[in-house]
């Protein structure tokens, strides 16, 4: 069994926080299209920071509204920290 990718972990966090089904499009707007409440944004942000041990700025997080962009954001921050 392969290790979970960044995308696997991001998806798992979204599913846990938003209590939605797993198979959503990586391009779907988390808040508008997946119906995740805006109040869940902070939990999502804090969970991503904890899971990947990174600090995410509010502006960068605000621009990353789908899985694809969140994965790119996490990867870029991990790369910057490496």
């Amino acid at each position: 069994m392969t290790d979970p990718t960044i995308e696997d972990k991001v998806r798992a966090i979204i599913v846990r926080i938003a209590k939605i089904e797993a198979g959503f499009s990586p391009d779907a707007d988390i808040f508008r299209e997946l119906g995740v409440k805006s109040a869940a944004a902070l939990d999502l942000l804090l969970s991503l920071e904890e899971e990947f041990n990174i600090a995410i700025s509010d502006d960068a997080f605000g621009d990353a509204r789908n899985v694809k962009k969140l994965v790119e954001l996490v990867a870029s921050l991990q790369g910057a920290a490496a």
């Binding site: 109040a39 869940a40 944004a41 605000g62």
Partner: peptide, 10 residues
């Protein structure tokens, strides 16, 4: 905390 964050961020 959660709703204040959403309100101010948006």
């Amino acid at each position: 905390a959660t709703k204040t964050y959403a309100q101010l961020r948006g």
